[in-house]
Amino acid sequence: MDFLNALVALANFVFIPAIAYGSQLALGALGVTLIYGILRFSNFAHGDTMAIGTMFTILVTWGLQALGVSFGPLPTALLAIPFGIVLTSLLVLGTDRLVYRFYREQKAKPVILVIVSMGVMFIYNGLTRLIIGPGDQNFADGERFLISARDFKTMTGLDEGLALKSTQAITVVVAILVVALLFWFLNHTRTGKSMRAYSDNEDLALLSGINPERVVMVTWIIVAALAVVAGTLYGLDKSFKPFTYFQILLPIFASAIVGGLGSPLGAIAGGFIIAFSEVGITYAWKKVLTYMLPESLEPSGLVQLLSTDYKFAVSFVILIIVLLFRPTGLFKGKSV
């Protein structure tokens, strides 16, 4: 019984949150890795693209709520995501047209594009705060729990409750759908293959008649879609605050690099590795250990390896370890 209780506690406080968080990171890292593969730079504006995309979704959600539209037990925000994607795509395509394209034509080195993306980051960040403000925004509605802790306890008779928030379930389901769609697109469509070819060998792709501007355009649209979905899921699961979205850039970069920059599969693996280590190392293990160990060995403290504020340290240490032993990341990166 104690063993089951320990398992349930572990699932409740570590597995489920980490899987949800990992899915969000993976979606974010996919966006970063696609830009790195196709446009050849790390996009510092990605966190703020997620923020501004989520903001669009929130505004549309509020609009829908005001009109009395609802999605039954599911959050209304899911209905608003397509609108958010369209608006964000327009925004990033406009940005590409006004800003990035010039440097491609100049054949600027990738690091210049990184600096350019810093400028874009400032602008997106300012726009988000200007429009929706820097504070917390809650936009989740619908059913809060798929299984609440109390239901679980009465159902199983265990002491420990297992709560499955509907936002967590939605995160995982949506992430699986989006990733499956993306991989199908990259591996089985003409446009998707041309993106991989362009990422692999730009000169040869040009010789094969692949239009680079089209590849870049499709990439931005996919990245916008990924950013909006990732941002909205994160916002539903936790809450929306522009600064948090800026900070999430570090774990996202870490995920992409751990997996191997440019490798979509790596981005997903990296996202889960980072998420599990962050949650695992900042979780107070006292509860689980109390169930597992005999009374005499019961821990006195919280058995929390590091305080939650050090979660960035965790992503960072994992990153350094991976880079020390596998400099190209787990999934040998640099090709989409």
């Binding site: 790195y36 593969g37 050849r40 730079f41 790390s42 054949k107 080195k109 990738p110 690091v111 990184v114 362009y198 990422s199 692999d200 060998n201 730009e202 000169d203 040009l206 970069f253 690099i257 920059l261 440019g262 400099p327 640099k334 090709s335």
Partner: peptide
């Protein structure tokens, strides 16, 4: 810096 720039497969 490999964490920000990707020279692989670039047009030359």
């Amino acid at each position: 810096d490999a964490s920000i720039t990707n020279p692989c497969g670039m047009a030359e």
